[in-house]
Protein backbone atom coordinates (compact mmCIF):
# COMPACT_ATOMS: atom_id res chain seq x y z
CA UNK A 1 0.00 0.00 0.00
CA UNK A 2 2.56 2.45 1.22
CA UNK A 3 4.82 1.63 -1.62
CA UNK A 4 2.06 2.10 -4.01
CA UNK A 5 1.27 5.55 -2.76
CA UNK A 6 4.82 6.73 -2.86
CA UNK A 7 5.02 5.49 -6.38
CA UNK A 8 1.94 7.48 -7.13
CA UNK A 9 3.44 10.61 -5.68
CA UNK A 10 6.57 9.94 -7.60
CA UNK A 11 4.52 9.76 -10.75
CA UNK A 12 3.02 13.11 -10.01
CA UNK A 13 6.41 14.54 -9.36
CA UNK A 14 7.63 13.39 -12.71
CA UNK A 15 4.56 14.85 -14.31
CA UNK A 16 5.17 18.22 -12.69
CA UNK A 17 8.79 18.12 -13.61
CA UNK A 18 7.82 17.52 -17.20
CA UNK A 19 5.49 20.43 -17.13
CA UNK A 20 8.19 22.59 -15.63
CA UNK A 21 10.60 21.60 -18.31
CA UNK A 22 7.97 22.34 -20.88
CA UNK A 23 7.44 25.71 -19.29
CA UNK A 24 11.14 26.37 -19.20
CA UNK A 25 11.41 25.40 -22.83
CA UNK A 26 8.73 27.83 -23.51
CA UNK A 27 10.56 30.85 -22.43
CA UNK A 28 14.04 30.00 -23.50
CA UNK A 29 13.69 28.48 -26.89
CA UNK A 30 10.48 29.16 -28.70
CA UNK A 31 9.23 32.55 -29.78
CA UNK A 32 5.65 31.36 -29.96
CA UNK A 33 3.00 33.43 -28.22
CA UNK A 34 1.78 32.05 -24.98
CA UNK A 35 -1.97 31.39 -25.16
CA UNK A 36 -3.43 33.49 -27.95
CA UNK A 37 -6.49 31.22 -27.90
CA UNK A 38 -8.05 33.35 -25.20
CA UNK A 39 -7.46 36.54 -27.14
CA UNK A 40 -8.75 34.99 -30.33
CA UNK A 41 -11.86 33.84 -28.54
CA UNK A 42 -12.64 37.16 -26.91
CA UNK A 43 -12.13 39.00 -30.19
CA UNK A 44 -14.42 36.62 -32.02
CA UNK A 45 -17.03 36.57 -29.30
CA UNK A 46 -17.23 40.34 -28.80
CA UNK A 47 -16.39 41.57 -32.28
CA UNK A 48 -14.00 43.98 -30.56
CA UNK A 49 -10.28 44.15 -31.18
CA UNK A 50 -8.32 42.97 -28.14
CA UNK A 51 -4.68 42.29 -27.45
CA UNK A 52 -2.51 40.45 -24.96
CA UNK A 53 -2.71 43.38 -22.52
CA UNK A 54 -6.00 41.95 -21.30
CA UNK A 55 -4.03 39.50 -19.15
CA UNK A 56 -0.35 40.28 -19.81
CA UNK A 57 1.73 43.24 -18.77
CA UNK A 58 2.82 43.85 -22.33
CA UNK A 59 0.34 44.33 -25.12
CA UNK A 60 2.53 42.30 -27.46
CA UNK A 61 2.45 39.24 -25.24
CA UNK A 62 5.01 37.73 -22.91
CA UNK A 63 7.71 36.96 -25.47
CA UNK A 64 10.15 39.62 -26.47
CA UNK A 65 12.62 42.00 -24.90
CA UNK A 66 10.30 44.86 -23.99
CA UNK A 67 9.13 45.76 -20.49
CA UNK A 68 7.02 42.96 -19.02
CA UNK A 69 8.33 40.49 -21.59
CA UNK A 70 10.36 37.44 -20.71
CA UNK A 71 13.63 38.44 -22.31
CA UNK A 72 13.44 41.86 -20.77
CA UNK A 73 13.08 40.73 -17.17
CA UNK A 74 15.69 41.39 -14.52
CA UNK A 75 16.86 38.89 -11.93
CA UNK A 76 14.27 39.68 -9.30
CA UNK A 77 11.47 39.53 -11.86
CA UNK A 78 12.69 36.21 -13.20
CA UNK A 79 12.52 34.85 -9.67
CA UNK A 80 8.93 35.99 -9.37
CA UNK A 81 8.17 34.40 -12.74
CA UNK A 82 9.66 31.10 -11.56
CA UNK A 83 7.54 31.35 -8.43
CA UNK A 84 4.41 32.01 -10.45
CA UNK A 85 5.06 29.15 -12.82
CA UNK A 86 4.86 26.73 -9.91
CA UNK A 87 1.29 27.75 -9.02
CA UNK A 88 -0.43 24.76 -10.55
CA UNK A 89 -3.11 24.55 -7.91
CA UNK A 90 -5.64 27.33 -7.30
CA UNK A 91 -5.39 29.64 -4.32
CA UNK A 92 -1.67 30.41 -4.48
CA UNK A 93 -0.75 34.07 -4.23
CA UNK A 94 1.43 34.94 -7.23
CA UNK A 95 2.90 38.06 -8.75
CA UNK A 96 4.12 37.16 -12.20
CA UNK A 97 5.90 40.04 -13.93
CA UNK A 98 4.63 39.01 -17.34
CA UNK A 99 0.99 39.04 -16.24
CA UNK A 100 -1.11 42.02 -15.28
CA UNK A 101 -3.41 42.12 -12.28
CA UNK A 102 -6.17 40.26 -14.08
CA UNK A 103 -3.81 37.62 -15.43
CA UNK A 104 -2.38 37.01 -11.99
CA UNK A 105 -5.86 36.74 -10.54
CA UNK A 106 -6.87 34.13 -13.12
CA UNK A 107 -3.93 31.96 -12.17
CA UNK A 108 -4.59 32.49 -8.48
CA UNK A 109 -8.23 31.67 -8.90
CA UNK A 110 -7.93 28.60 -11.14
CA UNK A 111 -4.34 27.46 -10.87
CA UNK A 112 -2.01 27.05 -13.80
CA UNK A 113 -3.13 23.49 -14.49
CA UNK A 114 -6.70 24.54 -15.05
CA UNK A 115 -5.62 27.50 -17.18
CA UNK A 116 -3.53 25.23 -19.38
CA UNK A 117 -6.52 22.93 -19.77
CA UNK A 118 -8.75 25.84 -20.69
CA UNK A 119 -6.61 26.70 -23.69
CA UNK A 120 -8.63 24.08 -25.55
CA UNK A 121 -11.96 25.64 -24.62
CA UNK A 122 -11.35 29.34 -24.00
CA UNK A 123 -15.08 30.08 -23.73
CA UNK A 124 -15.19 28.13 -20.46
CA UNK A 125 -12.88 30.62 -18.76
CA UNK A 126 -15.82 32.97 -18.27
CA UNK A 127 -17.86 30.37 -16.40
CA UNK A 128 -14.91 29.09 -14.38
CA UNK A 129 -14.01 32.54 -13.06
CA UNK A 130 -15.55 33.73 -9.82
CA UNK A 131 -18.56 35.93 -10.62
CA UNK A 132 -17.53 38.43 -7.94
CA UNK A 133 -14.08 38.96 -9.37
CA UNK A 134 -13.88 42.57 -10.52
CA UNK A 135 -10.26 43.66 -10.75
CA UNK A 136 -10.83 47.27 -11.77
CA UNK A 137 -13.94 47.69 -9.59
CA UNK A 138 -15.91 49.23 -12.42
CA UNK A 139 -18.96 47.17 -11.47
CA UNK A 140 -18.71 44.75 -14.39
CA UNK A 141 -17.38 41.31 -13.37
CA UNK A 142 -14.13 40.28 -15.02
CA UNK A 143 -15.80 37.24 -16.56
CA UNK A 144 -18.22 39.51 -18.43
CA UNK A 145 -15.45 41.88 -19.44
CA UNK A 146 -13.60 38.90 -20.87
CA UNK A 147 -16.65 38.02 -22.97
CA UNK A 148 -17.22 41.65 -23.97
CA UNK A 149 -13.61 42.09 -25.01
CA UNK A 150 -13.22 45.11 -22.72
CA UNK A 151 -10.32 45.92 -20.43
CA UNK A 152 -10.78 44.23 -17.03
CA UNK A 153 -8.02 46.37 -15.50
CA UNK A 154 -9.30 49.79 -16.57
CA UNK A 155 -12.25 51.09 -14.63
CA UNK A 156 -13.07 53.53 -17.40
CA UNK A 157 -13.44 50.80 -19.96
CA UNK A 158 -16.38 48.49 -20.24
CA UNK A 159 -19.40 47.68 -22.34
CA UNK A 160 -21.02 51.14 -22.70
CA UNK A 161 -24.52 50.04 -21.82
CA UNK A 162 -23.39 48.03 -18.79
CA UNK A 163 -21.23 50.95 -17.69
CA UNK A 164 -24.28 53.18 -17.99
CA UNK A 165 -26.41 50.99 -15.75
CA UNK A 166 -23.70 50.46 -13.17
CA UNK A 167 -22.76 54.13 -12.96
CA UNK A 168 -26.35 55.30 -12.99
CA UNK A 169 -26.81 53.34 -9.82
CA UNK A 170 -23.45 54.40 -8.42
CA UNK A 171 -23.96 58.12 -8.94
CA UNK A 172 -27.69 58.24 -8.40
CA UNK A 173 -27.35 60.75 -5.58
CA UNK A 174 -25.56 63.27 -7.77
CA UNK A 175 -27.77 62.59 -10.75
CA UNK A 176 -30.97 62.96 -8.73
CA UNK A 177 -29.63 66.15 -7.23
CA UNK A 178 -28.81 67.55 -10.65
CA UNK A 179 -32.15 66.38 -11.98
CA UNK A 180 -33.99 68.16 -9.15
CA UNK A 181 -31.82 71.24 -9.65
CA UNK A 182 -32.58 71.40 -13.36
CA UNK A 183 -36.30 70.89 -12.81
CA UNK A 184 -36.35 73.60 -10.18
CA UNK A 185 -34.33 75.97 -12.35
CA UNK A 186 -36.63 75.47 -15.28
CA UNK A 187 -39.67 75.86 -13.07
CA UNK A 188 -38.25 79.19 -12.00
CA UNK A 189 -37.35 80.23 -15.55
CA UNK A 190 -40.83 79.27 -16.74
CA UNK A 191 -42.40 81.54 -14.17
CA UNK A 192 -39.91 84.27 -14.99
CA UNK A 193 -41.06 84.14 -18.60
CA UNK A 194 -44.72 84.17 -17.57
CA UNK A 195 -44.20 87.03 -15.14
CA UNK A 196 -42.45 89.15 -17.73
CA UNK A 197 -45.10 88.28 -20.28
CA UNK A 198 -47.84 89.45 -17.91
CA UNK A 199 -46.03 92.70 -17.28
CA UNK A 200 -45.29 93.45 -20.93
CA UNK A 201 -48.82 92.58 -22.02
CA UNK A 202 -50.15 95.08 -19.50
CA UNK A 203 -48.07 97.78 -21.12
Amino acid sequence: MIDNRSQHQGGFRIFYACLLVMGANYFTVTAVHSYPQFQEFTEKHSGQAANCAMCHSNGNGPTGTGPGQIDGLNEEELKRLEEARKAFQPGQKIDSPILNEFGNKIVEELGRKEVLALVKEPEALATKLNKNLDTDRDGIPDAEEYLDGTDPTNKFHGHPWKMFLVNLNRYKQHILLTFAAVLLLNYGLGHLIKGIAVLTEKR
Partner: peptide
Amino acid sequence: GVFGGLVLL
Protein backbone atom coordinates in the same frame (compact mmCIF):
# COMPACT_ATOMS: atom_id res chain seq x y z
CA GLY B 1 -37.02 78.02 -8.41
CA VAL B 2 -33.87 79.61 -9.77
CA PHE B 3 -32.34 80.09 -6.35
CA GLY B 4 -33.21 76.57 -5.23
CA GLY B 5 -31.94 75.10 -8.47
CA LEU B 6 -28.65 76.93 -8.23
CA VAL B 7 -28.22 75.88 -4.59
CA LEU B 8 -28.88 72.24 -5.44
CA LEU B 9 -26.56 72.43 -8.41
